[in-house]
Design a protein around this nucleic acid. Structure first.
Lengths: 339, 339
DNA sequence: GTGAAAGCGCTAACAG
DNA sequence: CTGTTAGCGCTTTCAC
C-alpha cells in the first residue's frame, strides 16, 4: 500500500527542487530538455497524479458541480442527471448529486455544506417543501456569494438566475386540445397541489384550454394529490363519482395508477377512456396499453442546464445577465389515445 | 457579491491572530471567554463557513465518497443510491455519483480522476464492459493505494475487497421452486449474457433447480439478451417457437416486456402464464397485472455498502480483512403468479 | 536552467 | 491566554 506520490517526493528522489518538478511536468520551456525528460519519465513510471484538492485550493475552483434534486428514483430526474453528467464529463467537470428528499431542511443543509468551497456551482430543482414554504433564502445567499446557480423544472420567479424549463402551460394545452379535437370533452386532471410550480402550471393549462373552448371547468374533475400513498384511493373515488372520457396526469406515476384503476373496472382504454401522462419514462413505454405522454426531453434539460452553468463558470466577465431556456415538448401518441 | 469569509479576514478585522480565531471558533479552553464570544459573534454575524477544501487538504480526508454505477435510470441503482445517501448524510459524508454508462473506459477515467485526492473511498458496481473484458486493474490499483472500495451487486471474485450482494443463485432457486410447486414445469428464463455476473448466477440458479428436480434443461427456453434494443423482437420469437407456462426474468424491464408480449397475444396472466421478475421497482408495482418479483432490497444494499465503507474509513487499524455481506431477498407475490 | 519563497485556508505544536 | 510557525500539495513569481 503506497500512498500517493507528491511533487516533494519526486523532488527529493531526483535531487531537484519542487518547483523544478512542477515546471518540468508542465513542460515549461524554462527547464532543460534533459531534466524535463528525466522527471517526466520518473513521474510516469511511478504513476504520479497531481492532488486535486491542492489544485482546488490553489485555483479556487474545484471543477465539480453539484446537482440538488428531490429524488433520483424518478425517471425524469434520472434522465436529467444523465444529461448533466454527459456534458459535464465532456468538459472535465465532476458531478456531485444530492437528494433533498423533498425536504426543505435537507436542501438547505446540502447547499450550505457544498457551498463552502467544495463545488463551483449548483444545478437545482426545488423540493416540494421549499416550494410550499416559499423560502428560497438559501439559494439567494449562494448566488450572492457569487456562485452560479441554474434551476430547472421546479423553479421560482423569486430567484433571479438561469433557468431551464418546459412550457408547462402550453404543453398541457396541446394535450387537452388534442382530447377536444377528438370530441372528448369530459376530461379529468390528476395534478399536484398548486404550490408545486409545475403542477400549478399544468392545471392552469388545463383550465385555460377548457375556457378558451367555452367548456365550463368542473373542479371535481381536478384531483390534486397531496399524499401519494393515498393516490389509488383518491383515483378510485374519482372514478366512482365522476364521469369522464379522457384523463390527463401530470406525471407518469399518476397516469399509470389511473390506467390501472380503469383497467380493473373493465373500462376499455383507449376506446372508453383516453389517457395522456407527462414524462416519457420506462413506465409509460412498458405499460399495457403503453401510455401516451408529453415528452419532456429530460436528458436535453440536463444537458442545457449543465451547459448554462459551465458557460457561466468559465466566463471571465461578470454580466448579471440571466436567461430562461424553454425546452420544447412533444405529444407522443401510444396506445392510450385514439387517433 | 461578497466572497467567502476566511479566518484571516476575521483575524484582521478583530485585530487578533489567525490561530486565535481558529481556536475560538472551536471553543478551545485556551481562549478567554471574552475573545471567544467576540469572535464567535462576529463569525456568526458574517456567516463564516470554514473552507472545506482547505480542511480536506489539511486532514487528508475529504468526507466524500464516490459511487460508480452503470446507470442511474434503473430503479435498482437509483434505490441503492438512496440507501447510500441516507447513511452517508447521516454520518456527514457527501456522495459523488458517476455513471460508467456500462463503459469500461468511463469507469477507468472516473476512478482515476476521483482517486487523486477528491474522495475518501469508492462504492462501485461493475460496468458490463469491464465484466466482459475481465479487466479490473483500475480497481485493484486504487485499493493498492490504500483507498477503501466496496463493490455491490455486480462484483468479481478477482478483486479482494468488501462486497455487498444478494444470493442470486438462491433467490432464483426459490422462484423457480415456486413455479415447480405449482406444477408449472415449462419455465422460460430471460437473462443476460453470462459475462454479467448476476445474469450468470441467476441462470445458474434456474438450471440447478431444474436439475435438482430431474427436469431436463431446454436451452431454447433460456434467452440471453445481448442487445436491449432487440428485446421485444427476441421475446416474440421465444413466444412463437416455444411452449411454456412460467417465465422468470432477471430484471423488471425484461419481465414487463415479456408480460406485454404475452398480453398482446391474448395469453392470460397468471392463468396461462406465471411471471416472476427481479427488482421490486415502480414498473413491477404499476403494471397491469402487477408483476411478482424477487425483492432485492436495493435500499438496504446501499445502506450496508455505505456503512462498510465508512467503517473502513474511520477505522484506524489497517487489518486486511474483507467481508462479503449477503442481503436477504424475498419473493413478492403480486398478480402474475397464481397462488 | 534551477531553486527559494510566498501563498491558497486551515490546524496544531510550540513559544511567549 | 495569545501569537508564531510550520505544513498539507501545488503553482508562480522572483532571485541566483
Amino acid at each position: 500500500m503506497k500512498k500517493n506520490l507528491t511533487l516533494k517526493q519526486i523532488a527529493k528522489e531526483l535531487e531537484v527542487s519542487v518547483s523544478t518538478v512542477s515546471k518540468a511536468l508542465k513542460n515549461s520551456e524554462e527547464i532543460s530538455e534533459a531534466t524535463r525528460q528525466k522527471i517526466q519519465a520518473f513521474a510516469k513510471l511511478y504513476n504520479y497524479k497531481p492532488n486535486n484538492i491542492a489544485l482546488s485550493l490553489k485555483n479556487r475552483k474545484t471543477k465539480t458541480i453539484a446537482v440538488i434534486i428531490p429524488e433520483v428514483v424518478h425517471h425524469f430526474f434520472a434522465m436529467v442527471i444523465s444529461g448533466i453528467e454527459s456534458v459535464s464529463n465532456q468538459k472535465g467537470y465532476n458531478v456531485i448529486i444530492c437528494m433533498s428528499n423533498e425536504s426543505y431542511e435537507r436542501e438547505v443543509i446540502n447547499m450550505e455544506m457544498l457551498a463552502s468551497g467544495s463545488i463551483d456551482g449548483f444545478i437545482i430543482s426545488l423540493s416540494k417543501e421549499s416550494q410550499e414554504k416559499k423560502d428560497y433564502h438559501h439559494i439567494k445567499e449562494v448566488i450572492n456569494q457569487g456562485m452560479p446557480v441554474v434551476m430547472f423544472d421546479r423553479v421560482t420567479r423569486e430567484v433571479y438566475t438561469d433557468k431551464v424549463i418546459i412550457d408547462d402551460v402550453l404543453a398541457t394545452q396541446e394535450a387537452i386540445q388534442f382530447f377536444l379535437s377528438k370530441e372528448r370533452k369530459k376530461i379529468a386532471m390528476i395534478s399536484t397541489p398548486d404550490y408545486i410550480s409545475v403542477g400549478r402550471l399544468r392545471t392552469e393549462g388545463y383550465i385555460r384550454t377548457l375556457e378558451q373552448n367555452d367548456i365550463s371547468v368542473n373542479e371535481d374533475l381536478i384531483l390534486r394529490i397531496e399524499d401519494e400513498t393515498k393516490l389509488t384511493e383518491q383515483l378510485e373515488n374519482l372514478f366512482d363519482t365522476q364521469d369522464f372520457n379522457a384523463l390527463m396526469a401530470v406525471n407518469e406515476i399518476y397516469a399509470v395508477a389511473a390506467l390501472k384503476v380503469a383497467l380493473r373496472r373493465g373500462i376499455k382504454v383507449p376506446e372508453e377512456l383516453n389517457i395522456i401522462g407527462f414524462t416519457d419514462g420506462i413506465i409509460s413505454q412498458h405499460s399495457t396499453p403503453a401510455i401516451s405522454t408529453v415528452k419532456q426531453n429530460a436528458f436535453k434539460m440536463g444537458e442545457i442546464s449543465a451547459k448554462l452553468l459551465i458557460d457561466k463558470l468559465e466566463a471571465d466577465n461578470e454580466h448579471e445577465h440571466y436567461i430562461t431556456e424553454v425546452i420544447g415538448t412533444e405529444l407522443l401518441h401510444r396506445e392510450t389515445t385514439s387517433l
